[in-house]
């Protein structure tokens, strides 16, 4: 698995000219005590220019680790991350620092992602200062106005004087200051109040248009992911289960896990109670990532599992009658 050069190109990687970000056979190992845990296991996917890829799954599925591995924070244990054709995972320190400015990241906890001892102006200008860019003040004003903050009243304050939603705006402003191509959002709204989530989601959508961003959006909330994404990738226990057009996946999930996730969302209409009960409830909990099941990792909770699922690990295959092309699933018995 670590020998990438001899592996075939995964099926789900598209052959297009406008691919901005491409992950090939990504593996991330963590050392837990004396055990090695594979948090991300052979994940390949790509994101085209101007596209938003939603990455969903339950906690511990490795979705956030993928986001950070793209940034090389920390670098993946194996596999390649290609950003505009350049292999980030092969780069030396200085070249990596240079190239990585084209990718920026927003985190889940907006408060923990802002240094409490620094002023908002310095936080937003951080990247500009590091790279000694010209016209820093003007750029800082521009991005702060773009995210809906008034530079005159906000710039000289410190993060603890702001609410979570506003802190997230500051984080977005900081990430935009260097004019990146790719924005990686790691659960950007899950720490926010329901009434503030929509503001930030709309803002991200606006910023994507205004600055021509390509986005990777990591989240556990399927409704939020659908709202922002063009394509969606579903992960389970470090593996990619299904990837494809957002509408296609939500309308006709091909992987039993995707279907179960969708069915788990509580229904807002009390009259519809009982309808979703037709879809069998997932039994049990996530297995330990330190000791994943053989074959298909989902088989221990899968209602359709057969003997073959324990023996052979399913590979990605195109979904036969999907609404859109480029819809792939890793299942022996797709729905």
């Amino acid at each position: 698995m670590t020998n990438t050069s001899e592996q075939a190109t995964p099926l789900q990687l598209r052959n297009r000219d406008d691919i901005v970000l491409r992950l090939e056979h990504l593996v991330v190992n963590f050392q837990v005590g004396k055990q090695t845990v594979q948090a991300v296991s052979d994940v390949s996917l790509d994101v085209a220019l101007g596209e938003t890829l939603g990455l969903v799954g339950e906690s511990g599925c490795g979705k956030s680790t993928v986001g950070r591995a793209i940034m090389q924070l920390p670098p993946p244990s194996a596999g390649r991350v290609l950003f505009k054709g350049q292999d980030l995972s092969n780069m030396s320190g200085e070249a990596l620092r240079q190239t990585r400015t084209g990718l920026q990241m927003i985190f889940q906890d907006p408060i923990s992602s802002l240094n409490p001892r620094r002023k908002v102006r310095d936080i937003v200008a951080e990247g500009l200062q590091i790279w000694r860019r010209p016209n820093q003040d003007a750029r800082v004003r521009e991005v702060m106005e773009a995210v809906g903050l008034d530079p005159d009243t906000v710039a000289d304050r410190r993060p603890h004087q702001f609410s979570g939603g506003q802190c997230q705006r500051i984080c977005i402003a900081r990430s935009l200051a260097l004019d990146p191509d790719v924005l990686i959002c790691d659960e950007p709204v899950s720490a926010l109040d329901v009434s503030v989530q929509a503001q930030i989601l709309n803002l991200l959508e606006d910023m994507k248009q205004r600055y021509q961003l390509t986005m990777v959006f990591v989240a556990h909330n399927l409704a939020v992911v659908k709202n922002v994404s063009d394509r969606v990738a579903v992960m389970y226990l470090g593996k990619l289960c299904e990837i494809g057009n957002a509408e296609a996946i939500y309308a006709r999930p091909a992987h039993p896990y995707t279907r179960a996730l969708l069915a788990s969302i509580p229904d807002m209409d009390p009259d519809a109670r009982g309808q979703q009960d037709k879809i069998p409830l997932l039994q049990g909990d996530l297995p330990s990532p330190a000791n994943p099941p053989s074959g298909c990792r989902f088989r221990t909770r899968c209602p359709n599992a057969q003997a073959r699922c324990a023996e052979v690990e399913p590979v990605m295959q195109a979904v036969a009658d999907s609404m859109t092309p480029d819809h792939f699933v890793a299942c022996h018995f797709p729905l």
Binding site: R68, L73, M105, F107, D109, S113, I123, E126, G127
Partner: peptide, 10 residues
């Protein structure tokens, strides 16, 4: 995460 963010900035 602000340390991570700073690293990401280069």
């Amino acid at each position: 995460e602000y340390v991570l963010a700073a690293k990401a900035m280069g």
